[in-house]
């Protein structure tokens, strides 16, 4: 009975160990086989596959994953602060950077949505005629 309050913490800890293990395995595989995928991304796929093939259960990693993902924004702050160190180098290109980011975001949104919508409409038509 006395152990019950501590269980949630243990579960989150063990979930974190699983995640760290997958990251290490993924990084090893990416480096060893010279994969095009970054090690962390290989780790993501390994965790995903381990869940799909029921090697690990969702509840074993859910708490730890939520802890990391729900607070992810704080993890970018140090790199964001580091922007001041590269500002002198990118100052001349800053306008080009911002314009290309904003323009590309609009292009991607519209092109992607239009393609998907067109495909859906075709799919609906096929269903209707058949």
């Amino acid at each position: 009975m006395a152990r019950v309050p501590g269980k949630k913490g243990i579960k989150i800890f063990e979930g974190f160990v699983i995640i760290l293990f997958m990251q290490s395995l993924g990084t090893f595989l990416s480096n060893y086989f010279n994969l095009i995928l970054p090690g962390n991304l290989t780790g993501l796929l390994l965790l995903f596959l381990a869940l799909v093939f029921r090697i690990i259960r969702l509840d074993q990693v859910e708490g730890a994953a939520r802890l990391l993902l729900d607070n992810m924004m704080v993890l970018f702050i140090p790199l964001n602060i580091g922007l001041v160190t590269i500002m002198p180098r990118i100052r001349d290109e800053l306008l080009a950077i911002i314009i290309s980011l904003l323009a590309s975001t609009v292009i991607v949104m519209v092109v992607t949505a239009k393609v998907v919508e067109k495909m859906e409409r075709r799919r609906a038509n096929v269903k209707y005629t058949s």
Binding site: I19, Q23, L44, F48, V61, A64, L69, M72, L75
Partner: peptide, 8 residues
């Protein structure tokens, strides 16, 4: 680890 957690 946060990247790997996106598998969930």
């Amino acid at each position: 680890p946060a990247t790997v957690a996106l598998g969930v």
